[in-house]
Amino acid sequence: MTPLLAADPAAAFGQFLLIGLVSGLLYALIALGYTMVYGIVELINFAHGDLFMLGCLLSLEVCLLVGARTQAEAGTAAGVAAVALMLVAAPVFCAALNIAVDRAVYRPLRTAPKLAPLVSAIGVSFVFMGVGLFWKGATDVTFPDLLGPPIPPDAVNAAPPVPANLLEGTGLRFTFKDLMVVLVTIPTMAALTVFVRYTTLGKAMRATAQNPTAAQLMGINVDRVIAATFAIGGALAGVGSVVYSLYFNTVNYQMGFQNGVYAFTAAVLGGIGNIPGAVLGGIVIGVVKTLGGAYIGSEWSEALIFAILVVILIFRPNGLLGARTREKV
């Protein structure tokens, strides 16, 4: 047990819940990419986690390019520029890459048996990992803590300052970084919901997911709608990669696999193909993982996640929100 837990169990529980919620929002962002693509082409895009990984590596590249190499740049012009630039570059990059893969790999297999694109997606996943390995090597790379507290110029060699607690006095700890996750993920998901529900393209996406033949008969260019879906899923992974990298400050070429598995599980848990389901699933996974890690031991948190997945699928085979799928894409 952690020391905090022993000191004040109630506060500790609240704290773990909060951490779980914040990390769950990150999983949700990645889960949306799985669920939207599945909803429209019934493909489990196994490469999605690795697309996220490449987004993280690109974000790192942006930092190096702008000259924001360490926490010393937090709050400086270079640091702010790096964050702003990667919030544009990573989503654009991931969206473009996802469209390209759909065009080159999945579209030619659209009418093939479902196993063909699935196996191809696994192949793309390995290709992406290879690219990541070639790009940044096999070891963990530190991602500059650009949202950490700025280091005063005269204290470069001292221990880094402790980030301020935005919930001081409540017994909970919530830093600027946590706030940033919330401020990026929630509006992104809200925008996605509005887009899918009210715009013409959003409605065309839902129509295509529900009946592709009828969608064609309406004059909807199904290939374009699918490309748009890959673009949006990719962009969400890109946004997620920026937030994740700034939050955890470590990236490597294998990070896509584990986070991809969590996000995919979140999508299935919520009801694959279902947008609010993916968000709910992500939050559940984040909370379970954090609480499990704290109370049972982090070596068990993965086993716990999948145990819960199995139990939920036994009682709700279509996932938590899979049965009433009004907003399924």
Binding site: R206, Q210, N211, A214, L217, T325, K328
Partner: peptide, 10 residues
Amino acid sequence: PEGRKIFPRL
């Protein structure tokens, strides 16, 4: 079309 092919959740 045959079978109507209504979008069920629209």
